[in-house]
């Protein structure tokens, strides 16, 4: 029987066209970039039984398994089931057919830095949040990149995503424990934003400069600084690489709680649906917003979000990037 493949269908099944006509390549999602080591055996087994015996580690913390003959997709989909059952079902993702492989690939794997399970700097459990985001947005065909990172060090490069979630520590001071050692003020000045100054031999935080990194908590020798156990996030949006206008994401929200983050992410899909250029095979969210306008996007994604303090919403987005198109600059 001749090879007759519905390309759009296989793409949504997480397979891709490759440079070898007879072969495809499977994308495996690992939400939050953390998995039980035994699942590596499943990946290995798929690569060795159906692929060319190699595995590519993707920048988004998934796997790509290359060298799979097109004819074996149905078998591969069955072999993928343990991964779905271990990595997706426990998050609350539902499947019509667990033997049918991945039901979507447009919205990419939710990647995460290692988070506070390991890293002292992280302000929350990034893997767990990535899992809750996965449950909110997967499967979806629109091309959306989301990553979560524990602190403003941004090790996951949240600034290169459509949506980057950065942990913020709402620090609180027990002034009666401050001994005026200046450890927090010195550290904040040298390594962060200089948000802490000394007044009457006690540390004072300027909330307009504080970015919620939580380092004052780390360096304080008396425990005078501590984090509000409630979790807050900064959301940076519309960062991208690409061939037209690479740019860093710009801050959209500060001091957002998890519900706000999830609501904005859910809302973005209706905006995309209303404004995407369907003449293109796919269009990145940032370019859709460039065309449809920032006020329209802002209004759409904030639907149903209560704007109570401490939440702060950007009035404008300040991007730093550049355009490849020479004629914009050189005439």
């Amino acid at each position: 029987m001749p090879r007759d493949i519905v390309r759009k269908k296989i793409t949504k099944n997480a397979y891709r066209i490759t440079s070898k006509r007879a072969e495809t390549c499977l994308r495996v999602r690992v939400p939050g970039g953390h998995l039980d080591a035994c699942l590596l055996d499943v990946v290995r087994s798929i690569a060795e039984r159906f692929g060319d015996g190699t595995v590519h580690l993707t920048t988004r913390q998934g796997f790509e398994i290359p060298g799979i003959p097109w004819e074996r997709m149905a078998e591969v989909n069955k072999a993928v089931r343990p991964l779905l059952e271990a990595l997706e079902v426990p998050l609350g993702v539902t499947f019509v057919d667990l033997d049918g492989g991945y039901p979507g690939a447009g919205t990419r794997n939710i990647s995460a830095c290692i988070g506070n399970r390991v890293c002292p700097f992280a302000n929350y459990d990034t893997t767990a949040l990535a899992g809750r985001i996965e449950a909110a947005v997967f499967p979806h065909d629109f091309h959306v990149k989301i990553a979560v990172t524990g602190c403003p060090n941004d090790c996951i490069k949240a600034h290169m995503q459509d949506f980057g979630i950065i942990g913020q520590a709402m620090v609180e001071q027990d002034a009666s424990r401050c001994i005026g050692c200046e450890a927090c003020a010195k550290n904040c000045l040298k390594r962060v934003t200089g948000a802490i100054s000394m007044k009457n031999n006690r540390a004072v935080r300027d909330p307009r400069r504080c970015i919620g990194c939580g380092e004052c908590v780390l360096v304080c020798p008396t425990g005078a600084w501590s984090r509000d156990p409630r979790k807050y996030f900064r959301m940076v949006i519309l960062g991208r690489t690409g061939k037209k206008n690479p740019r860093m994401a710009a801050t959209f929200l500060e001091w957002a709680d998890e519900e706000v983050v999830l609501t904005v992410l859910r809302n973005c899909y209706a905006f995309i649906d209303a404004h995407i250029d369907r003449s293109l095979p796919k269009e990145h969210l940032g370019y859709i917003v460039d065309r449809a306008g920032w006020p329209a996007f802002r209004e759409a994604v904030l639907q149903g979000v209560s704007l109570d303090p401490p939440l702060r919403v950007a009035e404008t987005l300040e991007f730093s990037g550049y355009f490849y198109e020479r004629d914009r600059v050189f005439r």
Binding site: N116, N123, L218, R227, P229
Partner: peptide
């Protein structure tokens, strides 16, 4: 035990 008030996030302080 002061829950969530430890040096690292999601850790407790005992004092």
């Amino acid at each position: 035990r002061l829950e969530g008030r430890g040096r690292f996030s999601d850790t407790d302080m005992v004092r």
